[in-house]
């Protein structure tokens, strides 16, 4: 018992320490800088100002923010649409096959994601496989311009973050008690109806978790738009990077970054609330199921 407690304290303590030093402190520093003034030769000067946040209300930044959110939402929805059937199929596959299918989801992680992003150029480029194939088939006369467009960024984000959707969905679908679906069908529900009223609500935590895991990193991701994106749409990650590395305006970059962090925290709170409500409902559901079992 005592040993268990020691293990708990150390493992939690180490994690807390790690997050505190490498995540919390830098973010607090960033938040502080966001309230300071831009210096001529220094990165910032210790003069309090709200100008940086005011500047964020300019149409320029709002467009950047809007474009970023739009792309992140689109990627999340497509990941969900593609990831759910896949996760479902894996969860329902025979136990012998399942680890192999899961391995397929993990394999891309063996290669650095930046390299995988560059590899995409070989596929979607003007002289890439996609265009060459379409032209060989006579479907198009000249290459479709995908590189350096929004579409390219969208493809890149969706591809990069799809596994983040599949894994939580799989965990949640696999856990689903198939007898509940059978019960629904016994009571006369069609497959679609059973899915809508039983499967979907019970896998909702997985859906929400998957969406968060895709949406949040997609919002701040900067290497994908950097490599695949073009001149027309600047996204939030690139905007922040530029403030720090090119425009030499740390306070504005810090303000933009803090706004993004606040946005993420707000979403995490929504996630928690939704999850609590679902798990509350689930607990009542579980009681009902165990009651049935007890009676049988």
């Amino acid at each position: 018992m005592r040993q268990g407690q020691l293990f708990r304290v150390t493992s939690i303590g180490v994690t807390w320490f790690w997050l505190g030093v490498f995540a919390l402190l830098p973010n607090i520093a960033l938040l502080l800088v966001a309230f300071l003034d831009k210096g001529e030769t220094d990165f910032f000067i210790p003069v309090f100002t709200l100008n940086n946040f005011e500047e964020l209300f300019s149409p320029i930044f709002l467009t950047v923010l809007w474009d970023t959110v739009r792309l992140a939402v689109a990627s999340t929805l497509v990941c969900l649409a593609a990831g759910y059937p896949f996760a479902y199929a894996v969860a329902k596959a025979s136990p012998r096959r399942r680890p192999w299918l899961l391995l397929l989801v993990i394999i891309p992680f063996w290669t650095n994601s930046l390299i995988r992003t560059y590899a995409l150029i070989l596929i979607i480029g003007a002289q890439g496989m996609m265009n060459k194939a379409l032209m060989a088939l006579g479907l198009i006369a000249s290459p479709i311009e995908v590189m350096y467009t929004d579409l390219a960024v969208f493809i890149g984000l969706t591809y990069t973050f799809l596994p983040f959707m599949v894994l939580p969905l799989y965990a949640s679908i696999e856990k689903l008690d198939p007898r509940l679906v059978d019960a629904a069908k016994d009571l006369g529900a069609s497959s679609l109806r059973a899915f809508w009223h039983v499967t979907l609500p019970l896998t909702l935590p997985g859906i929400v978790a998957g969406c968060m895991l895709v949406f949040l990193p997609a919002l701040g991701c900067f290497y994908v738009p950097e490599v695949l994106g073009g001149a027309t749409n600047m996204l939030l990650g690139t905007f922040i990077k530029n403030q720090f590395l090119v425009a030499n305006n740390w306070p504005l970059g810090a303000a933009a970054s803090s706004v993004m962090t606040l946005l993420l925290i707000a979403l995490a709170l929504v996630y928690r609330t939704v999850n609590r409500r679902i798990s509350g409902r689930e607990r009542r559901g579980d009681m009902f199921v165990s009651g049935v079992e007890g009676g049988a």
């Binding site: 983040f164 965990a171 935590p205 997985g206």
Partner: peptide, 23 residues
């Protein structure tokens, strides 16, 4: 279920850390 999700989360976070490891 929650534990599963947390496990997935940790797995993915671990992978992200590997990426940063190079730097």
């Amino acid at each position: 279920m929650k534990r599963r999700i947390v496990a997935c989360f940790l797995l993915l976070a671990g992978l992200a850390v590997f990426g940063a490891g190079g730097a």
